[in-house]
């Protein structure tokens, strides 16, 4: 991962581990991120539903892999096959550790820690898919782009198939 860091001036900050899915910039609270890993061999688990990409072996641990694009309902580009490949973000949730497939890891970005309406926060853009809208915990206004922080607990809650 590139060690790119952007600093928000003034006030207490929080760090987000950021990545892209299509042209969206997303982030997850870094305290819940265990590690970022390169693409891995994934073993598919048949009958498990489209959001689950399979399982992977991380140094002897078997982790469930969530296909984050499908989970968040973000369209794939036409020429892009259903990817089971890509870098992974291994995150810790209340139901155990899970690996998320993302398009590209961006880096760590500092954001304002305070929640609530101020100029560093923005409403969710209107054109987002419902699954993603439900998973947003906050939208941070960066220049030139918005950073969508996702709620890992919600994203990683098993979905009924």
């Amino acid at each position: 991962m590139s060690a790119e860091t952007r600093v928000v001036t003034g006030g207490p900050t929080r760090r987000l581990c950021t990545f892209t899915l299509g042209d969206l910039l997303l982030g997850a609270d870094i305290t819940a991120v265990e590690e970022a890993v390169r693409e891995r061999d994934i073993t598919a688990v048949p009958l498990a539903g489209p959001t689950m990409a399979g399982v992977l072996n991380l140094r002897g641990r078997i982790l469930s892999v969530i296909d984050l694009r499908t989970r968040l309902g973000i369209q794939r580009d036409i020429d892009m096959p259903r990817s089971t490949n890509g870098p992974h973000l291994v995150v810790r949730t209340s139901t155990g550790s899970v690996s998320l497939i993302v398009d590209r890891l961006v880096g760590v970005i500092d954001v304002a820690a305070e929640s609530g309406a101020n100029e560093s926060h923005a409403p969710a853009p209107p054109h987002l898919p419902d699954q993603l809208r439900d998973a947003i915990s906050m939208v941070h206004r960066l220049s030139p782009q918005l950073l969508i922080e996702i709620d890992l607990e919600r994203v990683c809650t098993p979905v009924a198939v």
Binding site: D41, L47, M52, N57, G60, S64, P158
Partner: peptide, 27 residues
């Protein structure tokens, strides 16, 4: 034998998973 986690609780066809000698996973 390693259990599959809660994400695969709805798939009853598998009793777990195991890591093979080549590092790949077999269900």
């Amino acid at each position: 034998v390693r259990p599959l986690d809660v994400h695969y609780a709805n798939v009853d066809l598998f009793a777990g998973a195991t890591v093979m000698g080549d590092g790949k996973i077999a269900l």
